[in-house]
């Protein structure tokens, strides 16, 4: 537990030691603010859900790979994995610490949405908090699932850029399944689409204000599965 928290702290610290971390956050805040201004303030249509939908469609696919690309690939490249894997900690603690660090950074980076909620509530007639909490929770769950998938890709290579590009590819693929799902007639195909419905569940449930418990469990088990696969991928190198 203590080792896991140490790893979490180290990762967050490392992310913000280079200008890169701040640039990523700034670009994210800039683009999402632009949309918020255009759609909500200028368009006089207060819907925080649109903000999250925009971010999920256009920003998340790139943000998660940027947060995860270094996590395991860089350790391997710099041979610092020798420290982590010979310390008296389990691989599970290492992977989980890094995953949680990514989630902390993800939250910090997207916390600009809290500001949007505050600003929007000044203009809105109806209360927004419920919608906001529902959307943001779904958004974070979607982010957690993508983080877990992208971390696995980072564990499979020692080149962070290979990790990032393959992660973008996989994320886009996951997103595309959302539009594919409706056009597939085959039963097996639909089932498959259902299995990888990380984006679909966000858009169909949380973004519409439905706090779906099955989807919550879906996201948690999806993330757990890919974290487990990441642990296996790291362990496998020991046996290689």
């Amino acid at each position: 537990m203590r080792a896991m928290i140490e790893i979490l702290k180290k990762e967050v610290r490392q992310f913000f030691t280079t200008p890169m971390g701040y640039i990523i956050c700034a670009v994210y805040a800039g683009l999402s603010s632009l949309y918020f201004y255009a759609a909500n303030l200028n368009g006089m249509l207060v819907s925080l859900s649109y903000d999250f939908q925009f971010q999920a469609t256009w920003l998340l696919v790139f943000l998660m790979p940027l947060l995860t690309m270094r996590l395991l690939a860089e350790e391997r490249r710099m041979k610092t994995d020798q420290l982590l894997l010979t310390a008296p900690v389990t691989v599970g603690a290492v992977v989980l610490g890094k995953f949680l660090a990514s989630m902390v950074i993800f939250f910090l980076c997207t916390s600009v949405n809290l500001l949007f909620c505050l600003v929007a509530s000044l203009y809105s007639q109806q209360p927004l908090l419920g919608e906001f909490i529902c959307c943001y929770t779904g958004f974070l769950l979607l982010g957690a699932s993508l983080t877990a998938v992208d971390m696995l890709l980072s564990a499979l290579t020692e080149n962070p850029f290979v990790a990032a590009f393959s992660a973008i590819g996989v994320n886009v693929l996951l997103m595309v399944t959302r539009s594919l799902a409706s056009s597939i007639r085959l039963e097996a195909g639909r089932f498959l689409m259902e299995l990888v419905s990380v984006f679909t569940r966000f858009f169909n449930d949380f973004a519409r204000g439905i706090f779906s418990i099955p989807s919550l469990f879906y996201y948690l088990s999806f993330s757990a599965l890919f974290l487990f696969l990441t642990v296996l991928a790291v362990e496998k190198r020991r046996w290689g």
């Binding site: 080792a3 020798q82 008296p88």
Partner: peptide, 23 residues
């Protein structure tokens, strides 16, 4: 053979991290 160092941390930050990592 290649010291497992994080070049973007200070020596103090690094050793504090290892201290916690090794419990």
């Amino acid at each position: 053979e290649i010291p497992p160092l994080y070049k973007d941390l200070t020596a103090w930050e690094y050793l504090s991290f290892v201290h916690g990592l090794k419990r």
